[in-house]
Amino acid sequence: MTIGVLALQGDFARHIRMIEGLAAKAVEVKTKATLHSSDGLIIPGGESTTLAKLLHKHHLWDQVVQFGRTKPIYGTCAGLILLGTSPILPNLDAMGLIDIAVQRNAYGRQIDSFVANLELHLPDQKVAFEGVFIRAPKITGFGKSVQPLAWHDGNVVLAESDRILVSTFHPELTDDPAIHSYFIRQVAASMQHRDIQGAA
């Protein structure tokens, strides 16, 4: 199994460290070839406007959208903004791979960034988790296909639908691998599922 981490900008090195800490293989994704050799993709935290512009400039945007129709993607913060349905700029749409409406910098500026204790309701377990929120977005609405997995102050901060997992906070900035470990299990399940489909 290979987990690709989009490495155009942002804290991709922290995600790679996290994946490697779980004894899985991680690769930096900057090209079509490295994207398509991956079984799952992480879109890291960074600046969503910058990431969106770079994805278009390097002709990776459509490739990532196609990837997300068959393989799992996990987006943190900026990654979540790209995967949702709310426009990034007035003339720049998001990918719409998960049915969530997003408000950027919803808590305010950097001085309003914070750390909070969360409880994750993963399908297979409930765990305590420290959420690091940096100029974080809020999920302001979500469709029926979306399953919320954690809340803070009444807002959904971790959610999934089909193959797409998103968090408004940054597990890669902590030493707790619970969410990355969950994502790896989802990627493994998706590979198995595709193998069965391929064999049938």
């Binding site: 490495a7 155009l8 900008q9 942002g10 804290d11 991709f12 090195a13 922290r14 935290g45 960074g46 600046e47 910058t50 913060c77 900026a78 950097q110 960034s113 914070f114 750390v115 690091v132 929120f133 940096i134 100029r135 940054h170 900035l173």
Partner: peptide
């Protein structure tokens, strides 16, 4: 927030700016 957590949040933003101009 404790000083350690405040620092974690401050360094967190610096991490987000990596690989950029």
């Amino acid at each position: 927030m404790s000083i350690e957590k405040e620092l974690q949040v401050k360094i967190g933003l610096a991490e987000m700016l990596k690989g950029g101009v």
